[in-house]
Design a protein around this nucleic acid. Structure first.
Lengths: 336, 336
DNA sequence: ATGAAAGCGCTAACAC
DNA sequence: GTGTTAGCGCTTTCAT
């Protein structure tokens, strides 16, 4: 990078001291209008831009947010990043992105990276592998505000923002039942994730409400396209195959539809399918997928807003973690 | 953030000077093994981590890459970010993400933001609106290495990495012709984008090769789902409707399939469709979409590698911009 | 083998 | 109204 114009350059050219220039630049009341305009004019002319790094060092703040996320390529997460970036942009913060790639080990390294980069705060959705949270505890120990989103834990004293997973799952399964399904399978996320538990629990309670017996053999761990496709193939061939499916995300749901089609079953006539996410793929699948909208963009916005709030409030006395729940919404399309 | 352990803390506790501690920490040969171990031990014990910000100021480098991108939510771009982050991670760089949201104005602000943040280099794919490049020229004037990817320009002296758009388009259209199509429509990207031009040109030349007359009325600007759906509806109702479509991206292609279905036309029997991107949606659409794989992940990797190369080479004398082309590949599925 | 001092760019308490 | 000075954390000449 080219040598940048500094406050000192301006000071010398104007025969002033650096402090005067500094003050003039930030409209300090003590400075005479004359010098102020002179300084600002020259600064503009020379294309002066304050050196953020120097400011960072001085203020011990970087106006940067660290984001640790499992996979950027997943639609839901990219929608969240979009929301985060939107809020950060409006508040003049920058966002540093770190992917864990669903690896616990890499996630630990990511937490070190955000520490090294001295970000002001961190937004986290942890990996599927993560069940030990000490690396995040270390961030908190360093008094770096952390906000968890989507994949969160109650084990740490940190803010969190989640979709209303339980309610979403309940609505989804309730909808299937009202559409006539009685043997409803659930393709679940790992149970170490709170979202996995909550959605299972919503599924369970919706069955209960309608006096449908909960059967363990109808619940399967299958939260990717490939695993869901395989599992769907297996259980759709059983004599008493399910007539309804509630999948933990859209890709799993679409995999079920694909499997059904390959086995000559019609959707929604023979089986009905509901997803969770409301991704772009849901809208273009055939038939179009009924799904629970998770409002990833809003979730990202909200998470970022909560973090910024923490960054503003300096009083770290009696910290009370806040949990924000984003309402979900059932989007009914033609797969049910 | 909590007060961090500094080199000074260690120095005081050990009765040494900061310079000695600094040297010990980086295995300077002058330092006696005794003090070296003592320093390192205490550093480990206290959880010392070098203050990157101080280093940044001193070295005038941040080990950070700025990324300016139209839309994170678009699958192709998220795949690219994935590739970029991968390479950055391996080389101990961090990535700051800025979205232009396809807005020229915001993109200009983004370039100011990367300047302010003193990133070491910048990766750019510019917005659809952008036709003036002076904001990027300003980066180059500041001797900040810039690598353009996907949406690039020849107007600036900068490296670029692009997919082989011409070849991909040519293959796609050639494939349609070999499958029997004769009236092939092209849903194009804006022509201020090089990719728009190249893909149109590949389309044109494939027709030429087979002695099919190029007709302007078969080329439409339609690079989003909604615009493509609308346009497809219009032209599929014409008396001499096209029998083949080459769309500039997958979402447009899928919109065409949807429109055809709504009009009672069968794909691929009545019309055939090829997209460009090979997104996840392409694999799950019905029928599954034939498309040109753009290898976004590799493109991102390559762009980042090129940038890192520039960051290493200090000799800025006789700078020769390099253009790297990523081969594309036709992925044949059931929409053709 | 170790220490003192300067400096990266900026700000703010303290002079005058 | 403006200048002097110290300091943010670190490295690196230059001494000793």
């Amino acid at each position: 990078m080219k040598r940048q114009i500094t406050i000192k350059d301006i000071a010398i050219k104007l025969g002033l001291s650096t402090s005067t220039v500094s003050r003039a630049l930030k409209d300090h009341p003590d400075i005479s209008p004359k010098t102020r305009t002179a300084v600002k004019e020259l600064a503009g002319l020379l294309g002066y831009r304050p050196n953020r790094i120097a400011l960072n060092l001085r203020n011990n703040s970087t106006r940067t947010i660290g984001l640790i996320i499992p996979e950027i390529e997943h639609y839901f997460f990219s929608a969240i990043i979009n929301g985060i970036e939107e809020i950060a942009y409006k508040n003049d913060y920058s966002v540093m992105v770190f992917q864990s790639n669903e690896s616990y080990k890499r996630e630990v390294i990511n937490t070190q990276a955000v520490l090294t980069n001295r970000v002001d705060g961190v937004l986290v959705s942890f990996s599927k592998e993560t069940s030990d949270f000490s690396h995040f505890q270390k961030l908190i120990d360093n008094e770096i505000p952390v906000v968890f989103f989507d994949r969160t834990t109650e084990e740490l004293p940190a803010d969190q923002v989640v979709a209303d997973d339980y309610q979403g799952a309940f609505m989804a399964v309730n909808h299937l039942i009202e559409k006539g399904c009685r043997r409803i399978a659930h393709f679940a996320a790992p149970q170490n994730l709170q979202i996995g538990k909550s959605r299972l629990s919503g599924y369970h309670d919706a069955l209960l409400k309608h006096n449908i017996h909960f059967r363990h053999d109808l619940v399967h761990l299958a939260d990717t396209y490939d695993s869901a496709k395989k599992t769907a193939h297996d259980i759709l061939r059983r004599p008493e195959a399910p007539d309804g499916f509630f999948a933990v995300n859209d890709m799993s749901a679409i995999a079920i539809i694909k499997a059904a089609r390959e086995l000559g079953k019609r959707v929604p006539e023979d089986i009905k399918v509901v997803g969770f996410e409301n991704s772009k793929s849901a809208a273009i699948s055939e038939p179009e997928l009924t799904t629970v909208d998770q409002f990833g963009f809003d979730l990202g916005r909200e998470a970022c807003l909560m973090l910024l709030k923490r960054l503003k409030s300096t009083d770290e006395t009696d910290f009370k973690p806040v949990k924000k729940v984003i309402k979900t919404k059932l989007v009914v399309r033609s797969s049910t």
